[in-house]
């Protein structure tokens, strides 16, 4: 860096021009422009003005605005996230309530079905019992009837046997048997039997 012009025409007066009071600043690139000290003040002045303006614009307008935008965005994002969180919780509680009402309804339906089954079964049972009692009664009545008819019939059998016996005796002997002897004989037959 110390030797200014590596490739150009060797300029023996380059060093003397550095900081020299020349009115025409190296028109042919004889000196090394960044080291031409007579331009320094001018450059610094314009640098100060330009950079000062830039700093002012950034400090007062640009950066507060960008910061506000970013802040607003992160606020919006976090509030949106909170909102989403809240809505999700709401949906969860709604889902839980739905589940609960569903299971309640199922339990209720089960209860109703069970109750209905029970009452129906009880009704059927009582009906069945009533029917059975009636049938038993009818059965007993029928048995009683049969029994009376049998004794009745058995009574008739004795009469018929007596008549038949007297008729047989009359045909054989030509004489009606004595009623008392017949009764005695019938009694003997019945008891012997």
């Amino acid at each position: 860096m110390a030797q200014p012009n590596p490739l150009t025409h060797p300029s023996p007066n380059a060093d003397t021009q550095l900081g020299a009071h020349t009115e025409h600043p190296a028109p042919h690139g004889a000196a090394f422009p960044p080291f031409e000290t007579h331009t320094f003040l001018s450059q610094l002045i314009w640098l100060a003005i330009a950079f000062g303006l830039l700093y002012y614009l950034m400090d007062k307008i640009a950066l507060p605005r960008i910061q506000a935008i970013l802040h607003e965005r992160s606020n919006r994002l976090s509030s949106d996230l909170d909102e989403a969180q809240r809505m999700k919780a709401e949906a969860d509680t709604a889902g839980a309530a739905y589940e609960k009402s569903l299971s309640d309804a199922q339990a209720k339906a089960r209860d109703i079905a069970q109750g209905t089954r029970n009452t129906l079964a009880a009704e059927a049972e009582t009906k069945r019992k009533a029917l059975e009692a009636e049938l038993n009664q009818k059965l007993a009545a029928s048995e009683a009837t049969i029994r009376t008819r049998t004794t009745e019939a058995m009574g008739n059998v004795r009469g018929i046997a007596g008549e038949t016996a007297s008729a047989i005796v009359e045909r054989l002997t030509g004489q009606a048997p004595d009623q008392t002897a017949l009764d005695r004989a019938l009694d003997r037959a019945v008891t012997a039997h």
């Binding site: 900081g19 007579h38 331009t39 003040l41 314009w46 950079f51 614009l57 950034m58």
Partner: peptide, 20 residues
Amino acid sequence: SQEIAFTQSALYMFAAVGVI
């Protein structure tokens, strides 16, 4: 000894401020 001039360098600096 300082020459005060609005050079192309100054113009570029202001252009940079403008672009920024």
